[in-house]
């Protein structure tokens, strides 16, 4: 299962200047109340808690203060082959910057090694404009003193986050999903209160005990409540307006959310009888999407008394 999101973050005055400078291949430090130059610059002074306002350029050369070897890099790190993460004290700064150092083996890096920035080819105004550091020999350079602080060019960053999980289904969920692949809907009954849950939940939320009995349910039921979706959103696949509804399958005690189509949204109502519309059999997988949506059966509406406890 993959979870991805591009976090869009606005920047305050300090980080806007810092990121704007990075885009111009310059690194700024913040001057704190004790006279230290800190990179990256803090937004607020760690001692006085006042806003940091003074920024000064520092060098893109520095010295390794401590490091750790990354034998097995993970996704989205600055380098794909083994490298070192290091605390790097840039010339002109008093606090270290954490970043990557490109060397081929741990034998090629040591505390005290002089390193320099390798700038990214396409600067975007993020910390990744520093692609990584590399050994610098005895080289050094001054900060670019010509830096001018006008209105910052960069006022926001985008941080793409991509996560991957191996999602294991619980034993009850496993039966449910395997059932779907055969066109069946399996729920579970609580041995104490005898309520039937679908999809099955592993433990009865009323009694806090494992559900034990498997129950096969029909693919038809009653709309208990619903909403009409009128708001467009990213990734929407169905033309609005359409209806999301709680469908109480016959024999179940808890309704589950699904779509109601093949009917004008204005005609959907509480108590309406519906049945599942399945995908063609050859497309079935262990997925709830095997049921494309629910459609009206044409039966008379269910009496409110039959579902009032399931709202």
């Amino acid at each position: 299962m993959k979870v991805e999101f591009d976090y869009t973050r606005s920047l305050g005055p300090v980080l806007s200047q810092f990121m704007s400078a990075l885009k111009q291949h310059s690194i700024l430090g913040g001057v704190t109340s004790d006279g230290r130059v800190v990179v990256p610059p803090p937004e607020y002074d760690p001692i006085t808690h006042a806003a940091v306002t003074e920024l000064v350029p520092v060098s893109d050369h520095g010295v390794v203060q401590s490091w750790s070897w990354v034998a097995e890099p993970v996704a989205q790190q600055p380098l794909e082959k083994p490298f070192a993460f290091a605390q790097i004290l840039l010339d002109g700064a008093d606090a270290p910057l954490l970043h990557a150092v490109a060397v081929d083996s741990p034998a090629e890096i040591s505390t005290g090694l002089r390193v320099r920035v390798v700038w990214a080819e396409d600067p975007t105004g993020t910390i990744r404009d520093i692609a990584h550091f590399e050994p610098a020999g005895d080289g050094s350079s001054e900060g670019s003193a010509s830096m001018e602080f006008g209105a910052p060019e960069v006022t926001g960053i985008v941080s793409p986050v991509k996560l991957a999980y191996d999602y294991a289904a619980s034993p009850e969920e496993t039966k449910f999903f395997r059932g779907l692949a055969e066109g069946k809907i399996f729920g579970q009954r609580c041995p104490k209160c005898e309520k039937v849950y679908v999809p099955p939940r592993g433990a009865c939320p009323v009694d806090g005990i494992p559900t034990t009995d498997e129950v096969e349910l029909p693919d038809r039921g009653t709309v208990t409540t619903y909403c009409v979706v009128n708001v467009p959103f990213q990734g929407q696949t169905i033309p609005i307006p359409y209806v999301s509804a709680y469908v109480l399958l016959d024999g179940a005690d808890i309704a589950f959310l699904h779509l109601i189509l093949d009917i004008d949204a204005a005609d959907v109502r509480m108590g309406m009888r519906v049945e599942a519309v399945w995908k063609p059999r050859e497309e079935w997988t262990t997925d709830l999407n095997n049921i494309r949506y629910f459609k009206p059966t044409g039966e008379p509406d269910a009496d409110f008394e039959t579902y009032k406890h399931h709202l």
Partner: peptide
């Protein structure tokens, strides 16, 4: 803003601390 985008993993940070 300035650290997470580099994806420093827990083991690397502990290694820097240990060294």
């Amino acid at each position: 803003y300035t650290t997470q985008p580099l994806w420093p993993d827990t083991v690397s940070l502990a290694g820097i601390q240990a060294r």
